[in-house]
Every structure is written in C-alpha cells, then in structure tokens.
Nucleic acid binder design. Structure first.
Lengths: 243, 243
DNA sequence: ACCACGCGGTACTGTTCAGTGTAGTATCCA
DNA sequence: TGGATACTACACTGAACAGTACCGCGTGGT
C-alpha cells in the first residue's frame, strides 16, 4: 500500500449506511431492515470503501464485483445482499460522494460573504478551489462519471448539478450580493462566476484530466496558477473601493 | 440513421491508410505490404470509419470487434488482418483524429496574426473555438480519451498535447507577437492564452461533458457565451489602440 | 443458552468477447 | 489466363464476469 495510492478516505466517503433499501414498511409492521444488525453495517461499510477505491482507480467496467468483494474481505454473496446489483452499488457510491462535494462547495464560498479584503478572500477561495479540484480522486471521479454519462445519464446530470454546478451557483449568489453592496462591478453574476471558476481551474483541470497523475502541478505551482486567475478576474471585474 | 447520430465524418477522419504495419523491409527485399491492394485499402477504410463511430458512441470497452466488423460489412478476420489487436486499432484511430484536430488548431489561430480589428478577430476566433469544442463527436472523444487515460496513458498525453494543447500554444505564440507589436497588454502570453481559452469554452465544455447531448446549447446561445468570454478577456487584457 | 440470520466459501450458470483456425471464394495483377 | 492473396463465413477456444445456489459456520439478540 503505497502513499500515492488513491484512497477513498480522501473523498471523505460517508455513503449513507441506512439505504432506502425497500419502501419503508408498506404493511405497517415493524421493519426488520438489515440496517440494524451491526454485522450488516460493517459489511456494507467495507463494501462501500472498497468499491469507491476500485471504481476510482479502474473505472466502472474494469472493476469486477469479485474484486470489490475481495478488497472488502467479504463474500460476493454479501455484496449482493447489500446492493441489488452492480449498477445500484455504483450510483449509490457516486451520490454519496456527490453529497460531500456539495457540502464542500458551500463551505468554500461561505467566507466570501463576510470578507473585509475582497481580493484576498478571492485569492484564498481560488487556491482552495484549485487544490480541491485537482486532487487525484476528484479527477478520477470526473473521468469516471463523464465516461459513464451514457450508461448513467441521470447520475451524471445529478453529479454535475450538485458538485461543479453547486460551486457556480453559490459563487454567483455571493457575487450578486457583493454587486448589490456596490463592492464588485458585475452585471451578470452567473457569467462572472463561470469566468472566475474557469480562469482559476480551467487549464489545470483540463491538463490533469488527460495527463496522468505524473503531470500534477506542485502545491506552489497550483497557488501561482490560482493567483494568476484571480488577478485576471479582478482586472476584468474590478472591485469598487470600500465606501 | 437519424440526423442526430454521431457520424465519424464529422471529425473528418482520415486515418493513415498506409500504416507502418511492420518495420520496413528489414531484409532489403521489395515489400509486399498489403498497402497496395485496393481490396485491403477498402476494407481498412471501412473498418476505420465503423470503429471511429462506434468507439465515440459507446466507448472502448463497450464496443466489440464483432460490432465493428458488422458495421464495416467486413468479417472479423479481416479486422485482424488489418490491425494487430483492438488496442492498436483504437490508438491508430485516436491518433488519426488527433492529427485533424492539430490542423484545426492551426487554422483557428492563423487569422489572428493579420487582424486589423483585434477585438473582432478574437470574437470570431472564440465563436469558432467554442462551436468546434462542443460538437458532439469532439465531446465524446474527450470523454473517451480521458476515461481511457489509465489504459492508454501515452495516447492520452499525446492527444492532449496535440489537440487542446496545440490551441493553447498557437494562441500563446500569437499573443506574444501581438504584445511585441504593442497591440495587446500582456506580460505572460501562455497564461493569457489559457485565460482566453477557458473564459470562452470552460463552463460550456464542462457542462457538456456531463450532461448529455440534450443540454447542448443552441447556436445563438453558444455565440453569446463566446462573446461574454471575449468581453471579459478584453477587460482583463486591454488592447492598445492601433498607432 | 438458544436459534435465526447474515455470513464466508465455493462452485455453478449463462453470457459476452478477444482472438484463432480453416476451407472455400472473389478479386487483383502480371 | 493463372497464381497469389485478401476476402467471407463459421466454428471454436479460453477467459472474464454478473449474478445465483447451497451449505455449514458463528455472531448477535433475546
């Protein structure tokens, strides 16, 4: 287990351990959902961990259920006891990851609203954003989901809406506020948010999507790239001085 | 065959019909390369057409050699007479497409050098670029190559260097010239090129990579997006007036 | 202490697919 | 016209893999 290996922990994967498995008690009787048995919970967690890692490392088709079971130290039967089939396992994992991405987006943008020094806040935001987006498991997730967007179109849409899209909508909302306060000269907040985001992450993300992990820029290089994007943004959308 | 179907013609696929097949005549005798027989040429072209379409439609793993042979109206055996294996067929096709992308990049940037009205030339360039990059087969190619970047790392690097990368280097060179002529206020041409490209195509490309063909913006919408990117770029990197 | 149930192990089914072998046919070129 | 060669059709191998069946075990709840 080398240090450079993709670890699902990196994504803070905390997939719901109480799946909706069946419709909740349509007959009214107390539910014997396997969601209570600690054995089932342990197995389920192990499967999710293993599957997340493997899907990100190898993709959907090149990951077999046998591989997942082996890595989770669980029998294949147990996988199928917890997940109806491979597709549901995949979608559940992606949606779990998506939820954490959504949370990240909100936390990323929040500081902007009470920033005294707007340029400094934007620089900090940009650095965080670029660092997050170029992390290896995130890049792999992007590759994976876009590749499978034909097989799982709804899933791809949902991911995009809640992960990269969420950053843009939150950013646009913050920009709109700042514009209303007269602190940023912006007429179309949504466009400005897109420009900001892709000035900062566009080129690097594109490179990393194709060139392997080897081409990953160093930390200082990432900061330089982020700063360059912010500089261009501030030139295009100049902040008004504080009154 | 519906109008919305991906057609490999869209990419102007003209894969080399004279493959390097074997090392050229190591024994010195005149080579009987199958590259002369019109039967072989016809088969080879049909296979390339079919494989290009199918790989773009379904991806690498979900396209079987049987499918390719059937679509090319050729026996499977003929496929293997022309290409050593599925992987080589794939790489040869991608490299062929890459070559046309490379050519497109050069033709896209060329008009910039003799432009009288620089902002107008940039707007025109941006519209062309965005339109090209969001075309369905191109998007599918991006998905495909990034998805297979683990299986074909060299191929992915090569594609990126020669297709999206080529646009950036050509643009950077043109910007550097314009800056030297005092027509554009730029200190780092490479950074400026990246900013220009991703202001124009970033957000749209990202959306289209995930959301299916359904979410593809209309032509006028694309133009609006391109114009918005150019406007922001010109604000950040103002052109000096012509002397 | 009991026993139900989730578990591991293993073997199995059915299918898909890359790649090969072969024998006979059609096309090219000299 | 004849010899070479690429072609088709089809059968086949071997491997991988999703999903199922079954059995015996051992943990967890009561």
């Amino acid at each position: 287990m080398t240090g450079s290996e993709a670890n699902s922990d990196d994504l803070l994967v905390r997939v719901s351990l109480r799946p909706p498995h069946q419709a909740p008690t349509p007959d009214g009787s107390a539910r014997d959902d396997r969601s209570q048995d600690p054995r089932a919970l342990r197995s389920r967690a192990a499967i999710v961990q293993a599957a997340t890692t493997l899907f990100l490392e190898r993709g959907y088709v090149d990951t077999s259920v046998d591989d997942i079971a082996a890595r989770a130290a669980v029998s294949k039967r147990t996988v199928y006891n917890n997940f109806a089939d491979k597709e549901r396992l995949f979608t559940e994992i992606v949606l779990g990851v998506t939820a954490t991405a959504e949370q990240f987006a909100d936390e990323l943008i929040a500081p902007l609203r009470q920033a005294d020094d707007l340029p400094a806040a934007l620089r900090e935001l940009a650095r965080r954003h670029l660092a997050a987006v170029t992390r290896l498991p995130v890049v792999r997730l992007r590759r994976l989901i876009s590749a499978e967007s034909a097989r799982f179109p709804d899933l791809a849409r949902e991911y995009h809406r809640r992960a990269p899209g969420r950053v843009l909508t939150a950013l646009a909302a913050a920009f709109a506020d700042l514009a209303a306060q007269g602190r940023l000269r912006i007429h179309d907040a949504e466009t400005a948010a897109q420009h900001f985001a892709f000035l900062v992450v566009g080129a690097t993300l594109d490179r990393v999507m194709f060139e392997g992990e080897a081409a990953m820029p160093s930390g200082p290089e990432l900061d330089r790239l982020a700063d360059g994007g912010v500089e261009a943004f501030l030139a295009a959308y100049p902040p008004d001085e504080r009154p």
